[in-house]
Amino acid sequence: MPQHTFTVNGKTVTVEAPADLPTLWALRDKLGVTGPKYGCGIDVCKACTSHLDGEAFNPCVTPVSEVAGRSVTTIEGLADGELLHPVQQAWLEQDVAQCGYCQPGQIMAAVALLRRTPTPTDADIDAIENVCRCGSYFRVRQAIKRAAELMRGA
């Protein structure tokens, strides 16, 4: 079986898996990295959102062979040790999470948005497609705005 070497949250890993195995299952089932969640497996719900070389990607539809030689960041790799990323900090301040299941994906999507657009408008935030079945959207929106402030050093 082919081997695939890449980094996950800064650590180099090698997994043995069919080339077309979605990265989500390489992470969850082979590497025990369970932060990214399954919600649909077809790039609709965005619960699995993580970063590939710093940009948002959906590991449920990205074959593991495609991430070989590249750098994957999951929710577990966002904080700097005990020091939370400003987006995580804003999420705590706004107490966004209800069941929490969508939140790793929401947070990784927000981080990617703020990297591209440091001062997002409501329309920019509307473009985030991540489903939150608990309906926490308004707090997600407020937390993104708060994170933007934190990141500007406000």
Binding site: G32, T34, G35, Y38, I75, L78, D95, A97, P104, I107
Partner: peptide, 20 residues
């Protein structure tokens, strides 16, 4: 704030399929 909020935003909150 929720007592489990930090676990949720760091990916540490365990759901059924995350159990080992």
């Amino acid at each position: 704030s929720r007592i489990d909020a930090r676990a949720m935003v760091t990916g540490k909150q365990r759901y059924t399929l995350d159990l080992d």
